[in-house]
Design a binder for these strands. Structure first.
Lengths: 199, 199
DNA sequence: TGTACATCAGTGAACGCGCGTTCACTGATGTAC
DNA sequence: TGTACATCAGTGAACGCGCGTTCACTGATGTAC
């Protein structure tokens, strides 16, 4: 090796990290290879030394974005006493700063419909990421229910949070957007607290 | 007038109607003017005789798509007795055929994050459309609550349905997708049935 | 320690192609007489 | 009713531009002696 052992790998990681933000900000279809590379401080020519295709980078960046989303949620739970963790995760997800910073926010909220149009393999990776988010929520639900029922409820709860955040972002009126976040919070609590159908 | 009085207007409506489908299917950023025009059986040259710009058509098509979504939901409520209407609207929204036919389905579920990136005016029109969907749901909620609280809950409930449908579309595995729809249904019922905070 | 050399991450011109938009034209239609 | 004409919705070539991708090259780096 003539160059530092992991110099190229560091570049790759930088490209993926910046792309994870850019894709959330602008959407998957709206961003070109030149933009993605210049975000990482390079020119487009180096792209194919790192990735097989644009789609290859998109898949890696989506995975990275979801990981960052989960790490962010987990970060918000540190130092929160167990009995307040459920409300903490809901409030963290629906706080105004999350609504206003799409690029660093939940990848599913920023991109779910576009991801639904991608190939099976990329959707599979994304779905595992959604599962890891549901895994953050599941232990915070009230006790009861079968494993399946708890898992399904955690997914539905996440879907509800995601939908509320998306609509809060789409409203042009600030007061309506706040109401959307507050309503989303109430809805999340209602889902969590409803009776389990099985013991 | 040398031509039939509303020949041009019929063409415009056809372009808008086909675009309303194409945009939901492929996403807003992924579709070009040539595709939109050939969907309506014309060549791209005629486009600017009907619309000021691509964005102009997008705005009209989104409005049209949301109207169609609301009409579809209302259609599902015809001949349903009042006491079953809430479950009917939830089941209609989360039925597999809706999940599988994005092009004719809910515009918000297909495009919400992309719409959140558009200009204020288009988002305002979209938000009025979401309001008209919430207006379908609101009277079907259990009695109680202030007008504001009922309206907010109807919006949150819609957000929850939308999120569940989006995730059901993103999962590659069929059984998991079904579970997502069923979980979304339970979540919607939990939101609707939770206690009102005010009388 | 100093110099010649090999490596290879990154550069930037170039490829064919599709984009949004413009515009001179075509030809089907309805009108006038 | 038949023919000449005016209208104008729709056509398709063309504009400059950015796309994804390829590739000959550059020049900073670490190695060999």
């Amino acid at each position: 090796m003539r160059y530092g052992a992991d110099r190229k790998e560091q570049s790759r990681r930088e490209i993926v990290a910046r792309a994870a933000e850019r894709l959330r900000r602008d959407g998957i279809a709206a961003v070109g290879v030149r933009t993605l590379m210049s975000d990482a401080g390079m020119t487009h020519g180096a792209f194919y030394a790192h990735f097989g295709s644009r789609d290859d980078l998109v898949a890696q960046a989506l995975e990275r974005a979801i990981e960052a989303t989960r790490d962010g949620l987990l970060g918000h739970l540190e130092n929160v006493p167990a009995e307040h963790r459920f409300e903490a995760v809901v409030d963290a997800y629906l706080r105004p700063i999350h609504r206003d910073h799409v690029a660093k926010g939940c990848a599913a909220a920023a991109l779910a419909p576009e991801i639904a149009r991608l190939d099976d393999e990329t959707r599979g990776r994304f779905w595992r990421g959604v599962g890891s988010l549901a895994d953050v929520i599941e232990p915070l639900l009230p006790p009861g229910g079968s494993d399946d029922e708890r898992r399904t409820r955690a997914h539905a709860l996440f879907a509800s949070l995601m939908g509320s955040l998306q609509l809060a972002r789409a409203v042009p009126d600030a007061a309506e957007s706040e109401r959307m976040l507050a309503g989303g919070r109430d809805a999340a609590l209602a889902i969590a607290r409803s009776a389990w159908s099985s013991t």
